[in-house]
Simulated assay, not measured.
Amino acid sequence: MFGLYFFLSLLFSFNAKENFLNPEVIKKQKIEVSLTSPTDKKTIINTTEQLRNKKIVSLSIILIIIVFLLFYLLYQNNKLKQKIKRKDTKQKILLNIINSGIDSQEIERKKLASFLHDNINSLLSSAGLHLNTFTAQHNVKSDEIEKTKTILSEAHELLRDMSHDLVPSLLVRFGLIYALEDLCEKNSNSAIQFEFSSSVPISKRYVEKFEMKVYFIVSELFNNIIKHSAAQKATLSLAEKNNQLILNIHDDGIGFKTQKLKDVEGFGLNRIRARIQKYKGTLSITSKVNMGTKIKIHIPLPQ
């Protein structure tokens, strides 16, 4: 663009100073030539030819420079496109790796939770039942047996809680909306209150895998709020619009500068982004120092 402007300016300058293409000027020069001697005529013609040749050479150089600049800009543009393409490819590969890891973890979660609930807990319950039956039939009273019953009961509760953390039973039995409301209640304490609101009916069910993904996204965001925000209040709201599930999470914590979001992104946030992008959803984060953080998530509903 600069080369073209320079070329036009130079051409205009040549025209303004010499007017060698102006018919009136040429005519005037011819008249002047006709009034001079043959030697002078030859000198004037040679001078005119030299000026014209210089102008042609100058214009040729300018055109070559312009063509060179255009080729250079085209080269730089292609180079930038390739760089962006490579970056996008790397990002897609990274997201695929993260999603593969997440999918494997969630499958293992489900297997382990099922194993703990259906096998270990069942064995502990059976052991406690046999112990109670034995003591009742033989009228045995012993501190060791009572302690054993207490230990079995505690182990049963610990395994139940572990199973619930791996895959919440409320999520499996009653669905996403009910489980998220329970998650807000579970995370509320004297330091921070989580409030829940939803325009989606609590009985609404989605595909199991989709419900698990959304549940763990919210759970991970809640953990970040509890650990880093120093907030006293946080809200979660759900809605459906244009065949999308919309989640809004807001806290009144210390916040941060949004332009420095990349500096504070950890693997946790990358995992959240990967989960959302797998469903072709979007994540936007708005935050100001000492004015809290707002997170909006749009995820297309599974068909």
Rank of each mutant, 00 (worst) to 15 (best):
E106Q: 11
H130P: 00
E32T: 10
S163R: 05
K87A: 15
K186H: 05
T43V: 08
T89H: 15
M1I: 04
K81P: 00
T89G: 08
V167S: 12
L80E: 09
T43Y: 15
G128Q: 15
K149S: 09
D252L: 00
I31C: 06
E208Y: 11
E240Y: 02
M162T: 02
L261F: 15
L116F: 08
T235K: 15
A239W: 04
Q29Y: 13
Q91T: 02
K280F: 02
K17F: 14
F2W: 08
H228V: 10
L247K: 02
S13N: 10
E185L: 01
K209E: 12
T89D: 13
I225N: 00
S104H: 10
E108P: 00
K41N: 10
G281C: 03
I97Y: 11
F71N: 10
E265S: 12
L131T: 09
F12G: 12
S37L: 10
I84G: 08
L176Y: 03
F12V: 13
K41W: 09
L238R: 02
P168V: 00
L73S: 13
I64N: 02
I217L: 05
E208C: 06
R109C: 05
G255D: 01
K87Q: 15
S190M: 05
T282N: 03
M212N: 07
T293V: 03
T150E: 06
Q303A: 11
K227G: 06
I97N: 12
F256N: 03
K79N: 12
